[in-house]
Design a protein around this nucleic acid. Sequence first.
DNA 1: TGTTATTGTGTTTTT
DNA 2: CACAATAACA
Length: 779
Amino acid sequence: MQLNPAQQAAVDHRGSPLLVLAGAGTGKTRVITHRVAALMDEGVPPWRILAVTFTNKAAAEMRARMEKMCEGKVDVSQLWVGTFHSISARILRRHGESVGLSRNFAIYDTDDQTRLMKRVFKEMNRDDEQIKPRAILGHLDQLKNRGLTIDQVDQLGLEGFMTRLVALLGRRYQELLRAADASDFGDLLVLAVKLLEKAGTEQPRPGAQLVDVDPVVGLKRRFLHVVVDEYQDTNPVQARLVELLSQRAQLCVVGDDDQAIYGWRGADVSQILGFPDRQPGCELIRLEQNYRSTGHILHCADAIIRRNEGRLGKTLWSELGDGALVVLRACEDEREEARFVVNEILDALNEDIPPEEIAVFYRTHAQSRVIEQQLTDNGMRYAIFGGLGFFERKEIKDALAYLRLLQNPASDLDFTRIVNEPARGIGDTTVGRLTALAANRNVALLEVARNPEEAGVSGAAAKRLALFVAMIDELTARLHAGTPLGQLAAEVLERTGYRDALVQEGSEESEARVENLDEFVGALTEFAQDNPEQTLADYLEQVSLVSDADGGGRGEVRAVRLMTIHSAKGLEFEKVILTGMEEKVFPHSRSIAGEEAAREEGRRLRPEERAQLEEERRLAYVAVTRAKRQLVVTYARRRRLYNQEFIGTPSRFVRDLPPDSVRGRVPGVVRREAPAVPAQLQAMLSSPPPRPAAPARERSWNSDIVYDEGVAARPAARTRAPIASDDAPSLYKGMQVRHRQYGEGTLVGWDGTGSNLKLAINFPGVGVKTILARFCEPL
DNA sequence: TGTTATTGTGTTTTT
DNA sequence: CACAATAACA
C-alpha cells in the first residue's frame, strides 16, 4: 500500500525536529518503520539510529517489521530499538559504576519495591502508622518521574507530615536500594539521565587523548536519528533522556494528544503540546486519515473526544464507509452483561471473525472475573492481558530470587525472600538478628550469615544457617564455573529442596507450581541456546522488564482477548465489546471524586480535577478507536463490585454518543438516581409521610431520571433536588437531618444502597461528615 | 518455628 | 470478595 501525502511527508522530512500528530488508526507505525527504513536506505548506519517505544511488545514488533522490510539489505540487529526502561538499563549496565550500580545490578519490580519499603518501615518503627508503604512508594515514584531528587519533595505539594515521611523513608529506601546494588523502575530513568548529564562536564585531564574520551560522551554523540513513539505518554525524565541522547540527532516524535492516558503515572501531555515551542524550527505534520475503523465508530469516537478542552484538535476521516451501527445495550446487572458478551462473541464467531480479533474491554481488572466465569461456563477459551503474569507467580519469583542472589550476593531482599523458602528453620527471629547486625555494620545479610554467632544466633539456628550459606556458595561457584543457565536453574531447584517441597505437598496447586517451574527451567535453557553470549544478568534484566504486553509465555493465540483499556492501547480488533460503561466505573469513581466534591462545595472544578476527567475521556476515546468494524457498548443497571451493590447510571461517555450512529437507545440526559431509603430509615421518617407503594420501579430505569446539570452551580443547601415524583420517600439535598453527636445538619449527598447507604451531612460549625444512614434521623 | 484460623481492609490504570 | 496481616495453636 502506498503512503498518503501526509505520511510520505513525515517519512521524508529531514533537517529539523519533527512532530507527527497521528490520530488513532492513521498508520503511525507504518510511518515510523518507513522512516527508519528510508534512513538506512540513505546510508545512515543502523547503529546510529534509536527508536524508542513504550512497551516491549511494540519494540519487538517494530524490529520485526524492520527486518521484513530491509531483508538482507541492512543488519537491523544493529538498530537500537527499545523501551525507555530497557534502553536505560542497557546504558546503566555498561556505564553505571559512576552512579553506583555494578554491571550486574538487579532491577526491582513493584513487588520487590514494596517489600523493601516495608523493611524500611520496620527498621524505622513506622509500621504502626496509618500510611502504607505503597503510598510512600507512589509519591517517591512521582518524584522520580518528574526528575526531582528527594530534597525536592516539597515540590510535590503534599501535606506537611507526608512530605516529611516521604523524605525520611524515601531516603533510607534509596540507601538500601543502592546497598543492594539494585534499581527500581523509576531509578532506571533517573540514573540514566544523571549519568548522561554528568558525562562531559568534568574537566578533561591535561594531555588526554581523544581515545580517552568518556564512553558516555560518545554515547551522547552516537545517534544521528532518534524516533520516539507514543510521545504523549512520556514523563519529564523520559523527555530529558531523549534530549540527552539526541545531542547530534534529528529528533522525530510521534504521538496523539487525544490518547494521553498515563497522566497518573507522571506523564505530561504538555510535553507533546509544547514540543514545537521547545524545538526551534520544528515541523508539525498531522495524520488524520483513518484506515482502521468504519464511519459510525469514528463518529462515536469524535463525539466523545470533542468535549475535551485543551487539545490540538484533529478530525479523523475514513474512506471505509459508515459500516455497522455501534450497538448499545443496557443490562440488568453484571451477570446479564457477561451473558450478553458471550452472545456477542458467538455472533462474531458465526460471522467467521477469528477469536483473536474479538476483544472485551473493561476499566479495571476487578471487572474481568464475572466475564471470565461466563466464558468458562460456555467452554470458550480466552486470553487475559495483564493481571498476574507468569513471572509474577510466587514460585517463579522465588526461583528468580535464588538466581539473583547468586548473581548479586548483596541483594538482601532476595536473601530474605528465600532464606526460609522452603522452610528450613530459619525464622523471623533469626533473620531479625542478622538484619540488625547487617544494618549496624553496613554489610550484606549473606555476609553476616557467615558468622551467625556475632549476630547472637544460637547453636541450632546457626547450624542451619551455615548449611544454607554453604549451599548458596556451592551454587554460586556453579554459576561462575559457567554452568549452562537452564541446568543451573534446575540444580538450584534441586539443591535448595524447593522442588521437592512442592512435590511433597501433593496438592493440585503445588502440582501446577512444579509445572511452572519446569517451564521456567525450559525457558531458561531455550534462552541460553538462543543467546549463547548472554549471561544470567541479561536474562534477569529481560525478565524484569517484560510486562503483560508481550503475552509470550501464556495466552492462547486463537482465543478471545480480555483486557483493560490501558493495555489495549496500540492494538486493534475487528470487534470490540466495551463493558461496564457506568458512572463510577468508567469514568472511574476516583476521577469523579473531584467533581462531586466541587458540587457539594458549590465551587468550580480545579484544574487537576478537570484534567483527571479529561484523561478518562481520552481513555474512552482510545477504547472506541480500537474497533475496526464492530463496536458493542454495554452498561448495567446494578453492579456487584467489591462485594457491594452499586446502582449504575449510564456513563457520560454513553450519553455523548450520537444517536444516529447507535443501535439501541442512547440514554438521554441523566442524573444520579435517588436511592430507595432503607427500611430502618424509612421507619423513622415521619415527614414527608410514606406514600403508598407505587409501581414506579417497574418502569424503564432510565425514563424517570432527569438530568439537572445546574446542581453543580447552585449551593447545595438550596437545591431541593427532585424526589422522583411517584417514588417512595426519598432523600433530597437540603433535607434536614439529626445525628446524636453532631446535632442537626443539612444533607448534601449520599452514596451506597441498603444498609450501606451513607449520608454526607453538613453540620454547621463542624463541616461535612459522612455517616451511615441508620445513625441519622430526618427532621 | 511453622501452620492454620481469623480478622480486617481495601478496591485503577503500568514500565 | 480476595487477600494480607495478625492471632492462636501445634
